[in-house]
Computed example of a mutant assay.
Amino acid sequence: MTATVQPGSGAPSACPSPAARVRSGAARVAAPVGVALVAVTGAALLGAVNPHQPGHYPTCPFLWLTGLYCPGCGSLRAVHDLVHLDLAGAWSMNPFLVLVLPALLAAWVAWLRRAATGAARRRVLPAWTIWTILALVLAYWVARNVPALAPWLAP
């Protein structure tokens, strides 16, 4: 918040001008809006250029080096399928991504709401939550590479 000087008093005012409030509000939402623009642009690109056809996108580096699927393998194809409203196709490419996207969207909405209202940033997630997320990602990573566990997890 910028302080303005009252004419004749020499003391700064506690209330910024309306123009300063608008600028500060626009600046606060710039980051979440920028992330949304990047995400929408990427989804539009994936909707237009089909990753199911070979030659459009590079191979996953982890898959290329090890022959194993990473937790993100199939994500480009899953997003393409979601853009075309094919939930079953997206699920077959990367079910973890399909399950995580609503949580990411909810986190983005909360971020935008906090930025728009100027609310204070909430504290970081508790350690047990972060460890649980890490354990889920690692379990998914292992399960999709062991055909006896879950052959349907391979993209």
Rank of each mutant, 00 (worst) to 15 (best):
L85V: 14
C73H: 09
Q53D: 05
V79E: 11
R77N: 01
C73T: 08
L68E: 06
Y57Q: 11
C73G: 10
V49F: 09
L63K: 12
V79A: 14
C60F: 03
D86V: 11
N94A: 00
L46A: 07
G47P: 03
H56A: 10
L63E: 07
P58V: 12
D81E: 10
V40N: 10
N50P: 04
G42N: 05
L76Y: 00
L65D: 12
L97S: 05
V83R: 09
A90D: 01
G47D: 02
C60E: 14
L82C: 00
T59Y: 04
L99F: 14
L85T: 13
P54L: 03
P51D: 06
G67T: 05
W64G: 12
P95A: 00
T59F: 05
C60H: 00
C73F: 02
A78M: 01
T59L: 15
P71D: 14
L99G: 14
G74V: 09
V98A: 01
M93I: 01
V40S: 13
L85C: 14
M93K: 10
Y69M: 14
S92E: 14
P54Q: 08
L76K: 05
H84V: 12
L87V: 15
G47K: 02
L45M: 14
A44D: 11
T41N: 09
G72N: 11
W91G: 10
V83S: 02
W64T: 15
G89P: 03
G42C: 13
W64Y: 10
V49N: 11
C73S: 10
H52V: 12
S92F: 05
L97F: 06
